[in-house]
Computed example of a mutant assay.
Amino acid sequence: MIADRKDDHVRHAVDQRRADTGGNDFDCVTFVHHALAGIDSADVSLAIDFAGKPWDSPLFVNAMTGGSAKTGEINRKLAIAARETGVPIATGSMSAYFRDPAVADTYRVLRQENPHGVVLANVNANATVEQALRAIELLEADALQIHLNSVQEAVMPEGDRSFGSWPRQIEHLVAGVPIPVIVKEVGFGLSRQTVTWLRDAGVAVADVGGRGGTNFARIENSRRPAGDFAFIESWGQSTPNCLLDCAGIDGIDIAATGGIRSPLDIARALALGATATGVAGAFLDTVVRHDTDALIGQIRTWHDQLRQILTVLGARTPAELAGCDLLITGDVATFCALRGIDVASLAHRSPWWRESRDRGGVIGE
């Protein structure tokens, strides 16, 4: 039954992406173009420091699947693409492995095909320390993701209904595993209060996992005979809203996932304060509809395009995007007004004109 559910999730996720041709809240985030801010592309590096380790790219393949023969093959293709492009990769929830060790290879393939890459294990918030250590050992994982999915579980016909132990269990996992812990939402967002709590609990990374990408409430509702949870499909905060809500929280890295459709969305997320960005739906669609080579080409193209965006904006590193001028409009501006977030200041933070003046130019005088 678990294998069938994993296959259902992939099928519904791909169908959802093909049917969803609308925009999302990243369209409410616009860079102010300064025509003389550009730098030389050769001076741009995409490298970042994340969860205490160097990554070659701010892009990673985020948690998707595992637990069945079909999903194991998908993981194999994803792992090859990660290996060939040098991006980190996370496995999907490993709950199926804890219930049936026979499916171990559907997860282990991520390390087998990517022996020297960065691989993230993924468990739910009910996992014990012993289970987390088993997952880490199986993948020789570099970090542990704990996914928060109370909304998905509530809609899932066979889902959990008890979430009160999650904070205590997260503290146990942070204390009990030897690698950095990443806590991620699965598409409904993390609030400022939640991220602050995670920081204080010793979590290394908060992945905001906002609304705008794969909608697991919609997926689980599609699996309900009566489809009677459609009213909850718009639950949660979008990824841009989460990033703005969490701005300025020190002591924890922020990852942005949920609704990232292009290198421009990656740049927007980094400019809103994310250190790294994860993509699942867009890459899953490429692997399922095409093949591994197509995904390798897509990731390489995205890297090249992201580099050119940084070049035009005058950002030598992904971190420097956080100094670029942004215009926040539409629903995101409304959210920020209600949460007391000053977005007007984001439109006036670029240092490029001062740097030009210091080099002897007259712009900005």
Score class of each variant (00 low, 15 high):
91 T>A: 15
147 H>Y: 00
269 A>Q: 04
234 S>I: 12
283 F>T: 04
72 G>V: 00
325 D>H: 05
297 G>R: 15
326 L>I: 07
216 F>L: 07
80 I>A: 08
174 V>M: 11
268 R>T: 09
349 R>Q: 14
4 D>I: 13
290 H>W: 15
58 P>V: 01
128 T>D: 02
32 V>F: 15
72 G>H: 02
79 A>G: 03
178 P>M: 13
221 N>V: 00
215 N>F: 05
39 I>W: 06
134 R>H: 05
136 I>S: 01
162 S>P: 05
52 G>V: 05
154 A>K: 07
55 W>M: 01
63 A>R: 09
186 V>G: 05
38 G>Q: 12
260 I>S: 05
322 A>R: 09
88 P>I: 09
295 L>W: 04
303 H>I: 06
6 K>C: 01
62 N>H: 10
98 F>N: 07
222 S>R: 15
360 G>P: 03
242 C>Q: 00
244 L>D: 05
119 V>K: 02
185 E>C: 07
63 A>G: 02
7 D>R: 01
185 E>Q: 08
28 C>H: 11
255 A>R: 06
230 A>K: 14
295 L>T: 02
112 Q>G: 14
292 T>H: 08
97 Y>G: 02
219 I>V: 07
364 G>N: 01
203 V>I: 11
254 I>Q: 12
22 G>K: 12
189 G>R: 03
278 G>E: 09
31 F>V: 07
254 I>T: 12
9 H>T: 04
58 P>G: 05
235 W>S: 05
230 A>V: 11
189 G>W: 08
65 T>V: 02
154 A>L: 12
70 K>P: 12
346 L>F: 11
160 D>C: 08
200 D>W: 06
118 V>T: 13
